[in-house]
Nucleic acid binder design. Structure first.
Length: 450
RNA sequence: UCCUGAGUAGCUCAGCUGGUUAGAGCAUCUGACUGUUAAUCAGAGGGUCGGGGGUUCAAGUCCCUCCUCAGGAGCCA
């Protein structure tokens, strides 16, 4: 689509301008001087290119302006594009004109190494660095892929409320805020329940928005504010749900491979590992997973009276923690879905397995290479009485769930859905070591600045 | 919240068993150089050693306390 708005020439278009004059606008990533030469690495958001200012080719004023440039100063340049092997990226601009928008003073992020704590303090500037730039472009691709996938498969997007009257799942700690005279409102931890209602109106829907958890998690895979896409499908059973989850993840990874090879290379990501992400993925029932843990003597780590205790063999009925998930995933080179968990460790809205009342029709997708849990989903309980029973058992406020029970009173149907964590997925695909790197401005316990 | 670890220049770090005026590289500023890629070379400026208290003739160093940050656990996307 041709833009109606003002367009400029960009670094990413340089190959088509070799031998011609271009005008570029951007920031000075680095500058070195060598007598009558000034080299500038110009960054314009689409890429970087080297610009050379040779004293004899420009006016005295331009040359002295070039010498006075500092890291991250913003400039306009005009010059001729030339293929140049010695330059990063293979192209170089012979500069004839230079205008300065702003001379940056004392940019704090130097080309040397920095610690994480410092970089988080200057997150608003850190985003300009090549690694963060690459991650943000991949994040944008992942979101585009998600929307394309659902839009192309007959889904309608619906938006769930962010302010909610009570907990969706009843378990997590929520952010609370005053809501006029009505009392308290809570920031949503999931749009799922509302997506279920909308699926009964539109058939197949997805909700895509932020989720908030006030838990005191302090790990490299948790944020207090994160983005989640949650499809919900009427007339889908657990198997349909798992098929859809696999298709989605395959589509996202292949989309990124098709569109972001340059970024993946900046991140030094092993492409072959991503190329391998094609259906079918692996699937294990919880029972099979527990068998494997027991055979391989993977313990359950528990705290009993303040003492760390390893329980072997792993007892049936306990939920998996990071140590179990990581051990299980070491054998796989593709994502693995674990399904049919004990009902006691899963949320109240999950449907009981008709073949085994001890388990629910739940599924989690774990990513390889320590990607961890990227998807959690289930077939939903569609029987009014069984659902009410679970709500009472978990001591949830029954009144708040009357509308949700209505969905089971007026034309209840089998339906399923899942939630995919955008940051967890981007972290896995990019190979980032910490989730805070894959969202522009991470919100974590102990950090809300900048 | 619990466990572990760390705070020394703008940044990354060194600083021994407590002992003279607190050290380096990068960044900043000045100068030199026509091919730099984290350029190099010469010079300059830059410090409440996280805060407070204590021990001592003497504390960046030892003790107490508070603060901040990082990693892990549980919870989960």
């Amino acid at each position: 689509m041709e833009s109606r708005y003002k367009t400029y020439q960009y670094v990413e278009q340089l190959p088509q301008f070799v031998g011609n004059e271009v005008e570029l606008r951007g920031w000075v990533q680095n500058k070195t001087e060598k007598g009558k030469l000034v080299f500038i690495i110009l960054r314009d958001g689409t890429g970087i290119t080297q610009c050379v200012i040779f004293k004899n080719n420009v006016t005295e004023e331009i040359f002295s302006n070039a010498k006075s440039l500092t890291q991250e100063s913003s400039i306009y340049i005009k010059g001729t594009v030339r293929a140049e092997e010695r330059a990063p990226g293979g192209f170089e601009i012979d500069v004839t004109e230079l205008n300065v928008y702003n001379i940056a003073k004392f940019y704090p992020i130097t080309p040397k190494e920095h610690g994480d704590a410092f970089l988080m303090e200057v997150r608003h500037l850190w985003l300009r660095s090549s690694r963060q730039h690459a991650i943000m472009r991949i994040r944008s691709s992942v979101i585009k892929a998600i929307k394309d996938f659902f839009d192309g498969n007959g889904f309608k997007q619906m938006d769930s409320p962010i302010l909610t009257p009570s907990a969706c799942e009843g378990t997590s700690t929520l952010f609370e805020t005053k809501y006029f005279d009505i009392g308290s409102a809570y920031l949503s931890q999931s749009g799922q329940l509302y997506a279920e209602a909308t699926a009964m109106a539109l058939g197949r829907v997805y909700t895509f928005g932020p989720a908030f958890r006030a838990e005191l998690s302090k790990t490299r895979k948790h944020l207090t504010e994160f983005w989640m896409v949650e499809p919900e499908m009427a007339f889908f059973d657990l198997n349909d749900d798992m098929d859809l989850a696999e298709d989605l993840v395959e589509y996202i990874v292949q989309y990124v491979l098709k569109n972001n090879l340059k970024e993946l290379s900046v991140l030094e990501r092993d492409i072959s590992k991503l190329e391998n992400i094609k259906r079918p993925f692996y699937r294990l029932s919880y029972d099979e997973a527990v068998d494997w843990l027991q055979k391989n003597k993977i313990p359950l780590k528990k705290k009993i009276n303040g003492q760390d205790v390893d329980i072997v063999p792993f007892p049936w009925g306990e939920d998996f923690g990071s140590p179990q998930e990581e051990a299980l995933m070491e054998q796989f080179d593709k994502p693995c879905i674990i399904h049919r968990y004990p009902s006691d460790v899963k949320a109240f809205y999950m449907k009981r397995d008709p073949n085994n009342s001890k388990v629910v029709l739940a599924m989690d997708m774990l990513a390889p290479e320590k990607g961890g849990e990227i998807i959690g989903g289930s077939q939903r309980e569609d029987d009014e009485n069984l659902l009410l029973e679970r709500i009472r058992k978990e001591n949830l406020p029954e009144d708040d769930y009357q509308w949700y029970l209505d969905l089971r009173r007026f034309g209840s149907v089998p339906h399923s859905g899942f939630g995919l964590g955008v940051e967890r997925t981007v972290k896995w695909i990019t190979g980032a070591s910490h989730i805070r790197e894959v969202i522009p401005f991470p919100r974590m316990i102990y950090r809300i600045y900048p």
